[in-house]
């Protein structure tokens, strides 16, 4: 048995104090917690297109970022496309992995657990007979999604499992994928 000092400060690079402060502020003014995120997608050619993401609404006003981000999507060659970017479903999988991984880091920071490495490997199964309209009983989307975390941290296996469980419990994308959402699509 080794003796360790209790005073080491955990640093996963997450400012949990600020997040807890935000909770307190939103309790007083819940309307400030109403956010709207945007993405604008422009068709380029074929199945290739590009999203630009910058402004979002929150804290009662619109915010412009210093940088504009882009996310491109395309389809692979087996679907007779040019494979210039990941497919939209792959972007969904990566969004889930990013959301859960960010959550793991935040929860670990809050619980005083030092992370050394975190990797999430995500898989999603799709029967493409659905999107090709071949069988009405087959859905278009994923029939199952699996996420496998590989985490190296100063914590017991149970504590690490609890990190991952709590991250799912508080994840936006996990919620988006596991619960139905009303989606309204219109033409301007």
């Amino acid at each position: 048995m080794t003796i360790s000092t209790q005073s080491t400060t955990v640093s996963n690079g997450v400012n949990t104090e600020a997040l807890i402060g935000a909770r307190g502020a939103f309790e007083q003014t819940p309307e400030a917690a109403q956010f709207t995120f945007h993405s604008t997608c422009d068709w380029i050619e074929g199945t290739f297109n590009r999203n630009t993401i910058n402004s979002y609404f929150g804290l009662g006003q619109n915010h412009e970022r210093k940088r504009t981000f882009t996310i491109e999507a395309d389809h692979p060659e087996v679907f007779a496309a040019d494979d210039r970017a990941p497919t939209p479903p792959e972007i969904v999988l990566s969004a889930l992995a990013s959301c859960l991984t960010g959550g793991v880091a935040s929860v670990a920071q809050h619980r005083g657990i030092q992370l050394r490495s975190v990797r999430a490997v995500v898989e999603g199964d799709i029967d493409v007979q659905g999107i090709l309209g071949m069988d009405p009983d087959i859905r278009n989307g994923f029939s199952a999604i699996r996420v496998r975390f590989e985490i190296d941290a100063d914590a017991s296996a149970d504590d690490i499992n609890a990190l991952v469980a709590q991250s799912q419990k508080r994840s936006a994308v996990f919620d988006i994928l596991t619960n139905p959402t009303n989606v309204a699509v219109s033409v301007a």
């Binding site: 609890a162 469980a165 419990k169 996990f174």
Partner: peptide
Amino acid sequence: ALFSGALANNCALSDL
């Protein structure tokens, strides 16, 4: 009726 796909995590949270 539409059910959440998060049963596994709710069970994991409960066991933990």
